[in-house]
């Protein structure tokens, strides 16, 4: 699945779910990239809501209450923030079967600026009483997530990126996105990464190897429900762990790993986004600005080994 965007990888799976399941309905807010195949084959299963995200989520809830299983796609910053009360009251509390696809999560809108950055989505979704949360690492991972989440069965948020990402998984390695997938073994330090940071973690491991440091890399796509037992088991083997996530700390990967390994003698470094105002910069540069790129991850590994 190299050379494609998450949206392009997900669109045919959404259409397939619509074809297979008579009760799946799709909804968009003036954005059709995820739904172009549905619009071609089953336009009666798409609802155009316009640029009105609060209404979008409320309508999805109403559809769910009449027996439909809605798949909602919209730009992540507006889906998550503008519609937050609807997400909580209308979808999460009653645990309706609604899948929410947030396009452009994290920093992936880059130079479009902080109005479009969505580093708070994981924290906000974590604060809801019921909401599964996925941050896929690349297009193949996003497709694996959708295969698991469709047709909708519970409130679920999937953070998609806006542009093509470096390839992390092959068809052979993508596996079950609910589990930690160890993509690289190594004896010294374990890096656990989610979303776009997975590619940075693998590159950081290469850099560390050049300096004789052996780094293992695990990709965590499902943040909620979190694979606590699996992470705790990994902590028994690696007492030194770095987490890297393109999101605020609250409810994020680092906090969840810290909770999972609380009973283990682990040294943990959490790399996450802070509240500094970003420069006008592309996605990759912003990862560097917030200390989440390969250089920053390699530096965190080095620090752990020195202080370990």
């Amino acid at each position: 699945m190299s050379g494609t965007t998450m949206r392009a990888a997900c669109a045919p799976l959404i259409e397939e779910s619509v074809r297979r399941c008579a009760d799946v309905m799709t909804l968009g807010a003036d954005g059709h990239a995820l739904f172009a195949p549905v619009l071609r084959t089953r336009p009666d299963r798409f609802v155009e809501v316009g640029i009105a995200e609060a209404n979008l989520v409320g309508i999805a809830a109403g559809l769910a209450r009449t027996g439909w299983r809605p798949v909602v796609g919209a730009m992540a910053p507006f889906l998550v923030r503008r519609a937050y009360e609807q997400l909580r009251v209308d979808v999460s509390i009653p645990r309706l079967p609604v899948v929410l696809l947030g396009v452009g999560g994290g920093l992936s809108y880059g130079a479009l600026g902080p109005t479009h950055h969505t580093v708070d989505d994981v924290a906000l979704m974590s604060a809801l009483p019921s909401m599964d949360i996925y941050c896929p690492a690349d297009a193949a991972d996003a497709a694996a997530v959708l295969r698991h989440c469709l047709p909708p069965a519970a409130p679920t948020y999937v953070r998609l990126t806006a542009r093509q990402d470096p390839q992390v998984f092959s068809a052979d390695t993508v596996g079950d996105p609910r589990e930690v997938r160890l993509l690289r073994d190594g004896r010294d330090v374990l890096v656990l990464a989610t979303g776009r940071c997975a590619a940075e973690a693998l590159a950081a491991a290469d850099e560390c190897a050049d300096r004789g440091v052996d780094v293992a890399v695990g990709v965590v796509t499902c943040l909620r429900p979190f694979p606590d037992a699996q992470v705790a088991a990994l902590a028994q083997r690696w007492p030194l762990i770095v987490t890297a996530a393109e999101a605020l700390r609250f409810g994020g990967l680092g906090a969840r790993v810290a909770a999972a390994v609380a009973d283990h003698p682990v040294r943990l470094v959490q790399l996450a986004v802070d509240h500094r105002h970003p420069p006008v910069a592309a996605h990759e540069e912003l990862l560097g600005f917030y200390g989440l790129d390969r250089t920053a991850i390699a530096a965190a590994v080095a620090t752990l080994l020195v202080e370990g």
Binding site: G62, E85, V89
Partner: peptide, 19 residues
């Protein structure tokens, strides 16, 4: 539907009617 956070019901009603 759970209501009380104002301004939710008409959207939910739209979804029900369309559904």
């Amino acid at each position: 539907a759970a209501t009380g956070a104002l301004g939710h019901g008409l959207s939910i009603g739209c979804g029900m009617a369309l559904g």
